[in-house]
Design a protein around this nucleic acid. Structure first.
Lengths: 223, 223
DNA sequence: CTAATAATCTAACGATCGTTAGATTATGAT
DNA sequence: ATCATAATCTAACGATCGTTAGATTATTAG
């Protein structure tokens, strides 16, 4: 009876360790982060994470075995997606714990935001209120497919690589808040830097859709 | 600029992966689970997890390097504790994700609770209300030191190995709710089985102090 | 049909990890 | 002082992991 209890416990902890094993690789974490922005084919994931297609495929297989992602075949492409929002929530949770406990990570993140174009103390609810009243403009600078898969309310899509061309569309009389994939993504930082150089009043909002949703705030989906 | 962005990202994800690496071993997870019950010396941790002292020491070192636990020396003993409640919250989060996604784990947990002495649909708030009104008796069957480090409100300490001796203290006219370290701990299951055999009306409450606290409910500490 | 593309599978390598045994350090008891 | 205890450090082993290259499987285009 005592030894069977040990067997059961070993099995239970081993199951949880399967999740841990799936998220002990930096590249797998990056893939999860990317998949938080919506489903993507393997090739795109490999390109975004800057790894070979073979390696991406191997990592995705691991994630699939841990039931954190699932695949859907469409023509020649295989689209991967998270198995549920609980996976995105977990990504937010483990990243938050790392930010909380690892001083190196705090330092690296502070370095990203040491430029003055930051808007740290703005909470999600505050942002939502300002955007609703039209007091600010919220800019989603991710690729259009990610915007379509889910974006913040009142946000307008303007991918980073179109920003220069479409800069005339932006208002000069109110603050522009740019966001992207989340704290580890540099696109909104770049967008804010560029806009400020051009004389706009732009700030970066650190959170992405996954963080937004994890905090219980509403997300809009195109269709 | 583009390559420096890659370097920064690699660093950021690598930091989070340090947390992942710390929790990819079943035994390290078990140690974290044990430390959610309060600080303990290495020897006790090794005994509870049924591993050698050397191995426990090695695993604790890994957890220490990931800043998930910290050590305090007192005489000949070294006491380990979590570096904060965020670590316990993370343990609850990763276990919940595993329960959510891994069918094997669901099956194993269901096996534990296939006996009829279960009380699944009772929420924490409901339990709290019943305990406050004295309609049920809440029993903490963990070792006394863990009870002292933090326990549910209105709970009485009655360690599993003292249960038979002290059985006369228990009421026969109202339900007894036993809890222990959490979903992976078998002590409350055993306690409920024993009490039901003796003619009491006993049920197991699956959550432990870490889950209770993670849900935002109050915890009492002895002093 | 053949050619090209997207993705996976297989095999292999070096690196890392879990675990154990033996030596070592620090503390408390005698 | 000597001895016992608690814990860590070091070295070593087999196992596993991350990564790459080469072959293989589906699917679409021509």
């Amino acid at each position: 009876m005592k030894s069977s209890g040990r067997q059961v416990k070993d099995l239970l902890y081993a199951q949880v360790a399967r999740i841990g094993k799936a998220v002990c690789s930096p590249k797998r974490l990056e893939l999860i982060d990317l998949l938080c922005q919506g489903e993507k084919p393997v090739e795109r994931l490999a390109a975004e994470a800057q790894i070979s297609l073979k390696l991406a495929s191997a990592h995705l297989k691991e994630l699939r075995l841990a039931h954190l992602v699932e695949a859907r075949k469409e023509g020649k492409n295989v689209f991967y997606r998270l198995t549920g929002n609980s996976v995105a929530d977990f990504w937010v949770a483990i990243r938050s714990l790392a930010e909380d406990r690892l001083l190196d990570l705090q330092a690296a993140l502070d370095k990203l935001t040491e430029h003055p174009h930051e808007l740290k103390p703005l909470s999600g609810k505050e942002l939502l209120g300002l955007a609703k009243n039209g007091e600010i403009m919220v800019l989603d600078v991710r690729p259009p497919s990610e915007y379509a898969a889910g974006h913040l309310p009142y946000a307008q899509s303007m991918p980073l690589d179109e920003l220069k061309k479409r800069i005339a569309e932006l208002p000069r009389d109110k603050p522009i808040v740019a966001y992207c994939r989340g704290p580890f993504c540099l696109m909104a930082v770049e967008a804010a830097e560029l806009l400020n150089k051009k004389g706009f009043h732009a700030v970066r909002f650190e959170e992405g859709v996954a963080e937004w949703r994890a905090h219980g705030l509403p997300v809009e989906v195109e269709r």
